[in-house]
Nucleic acid binder design. Sequence first.
DNA 1: ATAAATCCTATCGTTTTAGTAGATTAATAA
DNA 2: TTATTAATCTACTAAAACGATAGGATTTAT
Lengths: 135, 135
Amino acid sequence: MLSKKTKYGLKALTYLAKKEDRNPVPIGEIAQQNNISQKFLESILLLLRRTGVLASKKGKGGGYYLIKEPSEILMTDVIRVLEGPIAMVPCVSLNFYEKCDDCPDEGTCSVHKLMLKVRDSALEIYRNTTLSNLI
Amino acid sequence: MLSKKTKYGLKALTYLAKKEDRNPVPIGEIAQQNNISQKFLESILLLLRRTGVLASKKGKGGGYYLIKEPSEILMTDVIRVLEGPIAMVPCVSLNFYEKCDDCPDEGTCSVHKLMLKVRDSALEIYRNTTLSNLI
DNA sequence: ATAAATCCTATCGTTTTAGTAGATTAATAA
DNA sequence: TTATTAATCTACTAAAACGATAGGATTTAT
């Protein structure tokens, strides 16, 4: 299941991308327009800022805004920040690889085999989808 | 993330599929050979039996065994039983559809759009993969 | 100064996950 | 019939993750 964090994060990014200008948009507006708990969204936008997807401006007239063109914002990056690994098992993860402690040999593991396919197909989509494709 | 339940279930099924005969295999053997907690595996195999993927025989000489050919056992069925919906959001699920309460219109929802693609690609794989493909 | 906004830390209730324990039932072999 | 083997059923539990919420500190524009 996709976490609400990812869901809300994607909605917020899309909301910002839809705006004509790139002026700062306050959290309150984003939260209201998308039916998201403001406090929860705060932490999500903060995370997106810390990882370089968004920038923010403090104080009156402040808010969050995109620093890159929507067509430059890849889903691979967004999903990895919000949801974590794209792979469903660590042993097939590119960025978060970990060996399974119960599995003696990845080469013959059925789960590994299947999840590798699933990861590849998801990756294919995320790599070829930008924020602008979602508007 | 794939649950251990699904992972263990898949491993157990593969283990059974690899055997030449279709004689009942006791839980203990499956658990040991695959480094799975026996008690946990019990509940998983029980679930697979109740949903018609496996059959069982009680008492001495008993155990679990496949009732269908591995090539007849589709990943769509196995995954749905063990992991639940293939879709990452209920609003794009074929078998477990639910409307999002926060979303006014699926047609314009960016999350919906993206997750539909992801579901389709996963479905494509699961539909075209059987247990025999994992051996 | 004041209002508006982000930033930061901590906490919290609920649900899910991954198991464990123990008793019961059924089949088989002796 | 009795002992053994193995599935079945019910109940419980510890830990982690999830989805928030609370409250204050800090920054900026007017």
